Amino acid sequence: MATNSTLSPEYLAESKTGLVTTMYAIPIALEALSTGWRLWASASAQSGFWFSFDDYLMLFATLVAMTVCVLGIVYGPPNGLGRHIEALSKHQVQQFLKGDYIFSHFYDIAIAFTKLSILALYYRIFVTRKFRLIVLGTACFVIVWVIVMEVTLGFGCRPIKAWWGEAKGKCINKEAFTYFTNVTNMVIDLWVFLMPIPVILGLQAAKEKRIILCLMFGVGLVVCAISAARLSFVFGVASADFTWNEASLGILSAWEPCCAILCANFPPIYRHLVIISEFLRAGVRNVTQWTVTQSRSAATGVSSDRHGGSKGKGEVQHHDWAKLNHSDAFTGETNRTVTEVSAQGPPSDAVEMDGMKVGGIMVERAFTQVSAQDVEAACSSRDIEEGKE
């Protein structure tokens, strides 16, 4: 489009392209890491590279979601997403609209297959017949929904080139269609993420465990918040300056599938996250204990020097156990490395430490320090007793 000479250079120079590019790039790494971790956990649990059906669905959804971000980077900022439309050429605007059309197809498929993966996970882990029938019914509805979205979008303009302005034709109301997509998508998300809550609350388990499970499966409600946020930016589709106003909508369109994937991958990798958390807490606890022990030892040594050296003979000083839990993130098995110090003698003397290997048996060793004078005195006592005999 021709640049309007009445607009200031500052206005025309305004740009969000750097932010848009960054916000499209970050989800790619998060999606790859999250799903890769999920597949790794699944393969480790089954002792081989065989995955569940929900894992394959999630892998496909992740690849499509990553494609969404790549399309956003390729067709978005280079063609004016995040800039005012008056600063763009006609060719740039057409390329942007063409990319937006392709982007929308992949977006619908990504969010649909993420939902199908979650439903497949429900079907696998919840064995109640009634609940499984509800899961299957919901899956059928999601499949019908994505087909309707794709067909409507595919024939959104006749001829299709009219969508990006290369030809004249008749098109659907893009703003109304975007609103409908967002509202129905948000309702389905609410239903899918709340589905297992009644089943979990009915389990014969401790209250704390049921609460944890509800939080684990209900974390996906964050995705609903993103869907709700997208609704506030749908106006950008019908705006005259849509390349500028659609920047926020485009960013949320990339992050919605990403957050859905992260939430869907959370239950399968939850055990690994707990193991890592316990390992880190144990490490911090041991560092703290070691620091406190060193401080006390130093303080005791200073006190001993001030009182004329070592303590009385035979006095025993015991050091507390220092334990470090090592968890195997591959198998979930927990082993222990145990170190104990138990010494007799002056605190200023050197103390030996014995570290056990992973999987070893807990062993306690006592080290005794005896001076040369003590040995001499013991020998003299023994000679006197033998002489009396």
Rank of each mutant, 00 (worst) to 15 (best):
T138E: 04
P159Q: 10
E150D: 14
G156K: 07
P159T: 09
T114E: 08
G137N: 03
A162F: 03
G154T: 06
T178F: 09
R124W: 02
N185T: 08
A112I: 05
V183T: 09
V127C: 08
M186F: 02
A120I: 11
I125P: 08
T181P: 00
M186N: 14
A112E: 04
W164P: 07
P159M: 06
V199W: 08
V151F: 13
V146G: 04
E175R: 11
C140G: 14
A162S: 15
P159G: 08
E175F: 07
G137M: 10
L119A: 03
L121Q: 15
V192I: 15
G156R: 08
T114Q: 04
E175W: 09
G156P: 03
I143D: 00
T184S: 13
I172D: 08
L190R: 02
E166C: 03
G169L: 03
I118S: 09
L153V: 00
A112T: 12
E150N: 13
L190K: 01
V151N: 06
T152V: 14
W145H: 15
L116G: 01
T181M: 08
F113R: 01
G137V: 03
V135N: 01
V142C: 13
T128W: 05
F126I: 15
F177C: 02
A112R: 05
N185P: 00
I197L: 15
A176K: 12
F141R: 02
F193K: 01
K168F: 01
R129Y: 11
E166W: 06
E175P: 00
A162N: 05
I147K: 00
A162E: 03
A139E: 02
W163E: 06
L133V: 12
E150Y: 03
D189N: 14
V144H: 03
T138W: 01
P196R: 01
T128N: 15
T128F: 04
I125C: 09
L116E: 00
L190M: 12
C140S: 14
I160S: 09
Y122E: 11
I118H: 05
W191I: 12
T114V: 13
I188Y: 05
V144F: 15
R158N: 13
I134W: 14
G156Q: 15
T128R: 14
K170H: 13
K130P: 02
V142W: 02
C171V: 03
K130N: 10
N182C: 14
V146F: 04
L121K: 04
D189V: 04
T152P: 01
A112N: 05
V148M: 12
K168P: 00
V151C: 11
L121V: 07
K161W: 04
E150F: 03
V192Q: 00
A120V: 07
K174S: 07
F180H: 07
R158C: 06
I111A: 04
V199R: 08
L194Q: 05
C157Q: 10
Y122N: 11
T184K: 01
V127Q: 13
V148I: 15
V151G: 09
G137Y: 07
E150P: 00
K130I: 10
L121I: 11
K174I: 05
W163L: 06
L190W: 15
W164G: 06
I134F: 12
V144E: 07
V151H: 10
W191K: 00
I160F: 08
V199L: 14
E166V: 05
V192T: 10
L190Y: 14
V183E: 03
Y179A: 06
F193Q: 01
